[in-house]
């Protein structure tokens, strides 16, 4: 089972609204991962995003579900900008987890 989230419908063509990111995280991504589902974040039509949006969207799932989140979250149709920002958050989140230096 997988859940597909169309980012453009919720966050617009430049994803920067952290309130939207937080809502998606709390109401969709976290429950889906808790149920063992795959989560597909479809960025089709989203030209760019900010680091703080992506952090609010996926940092907590990575912190809480760790390898499960890293394996079950998929990012589809990403522009180069979106890819770079997601790679940044993945990298520093995994560094933070390794050091136990991240608080809820």
């Amino acid at each position: 089972m997988s859940m597909i989230i169309k980012m453009k419908d919720l966050a617009g063509d430049f994803a920067e609204n952290k309130d939207v990111a937080k809502d998606l995280r709390v109401t969709k991504i976290m429950p889906a991962l808790a149920d063992g589902k795959e989560v597909v974040l479809d960025f089709s039509g989203v030209s760019g995003t900010t680091q703080s949006f992506i952090h609010a969207l996926i940092s907590e799932p990575i912190r809480q579900f760790r390898d499960v989140a890293l394996e079950k979250m998929h990012h589809k149709n990403c522009s180069d900008v979106v890819k770079e920002v997601i790679k940044t958050v993945y990298e520093y989140m995994q560094e933070s987890l390794d050091s136990g230096n991240y608080e809820k």
Binding site: K18, K22, R25, Q51, S52, H55, A56, S59, E60, R63, V89, Y92, E95, S96, S99, N101, Y102, E103, K104
Partner: peptide, 10 residues
């Protein structure tokens, strides 16, 4: 490293 809502990177 921040919290679930803030990374301190901006």
């Amino acid at each position: 490293g921040g919290t679930e809502d803030n990374a301190g990177a901006g």
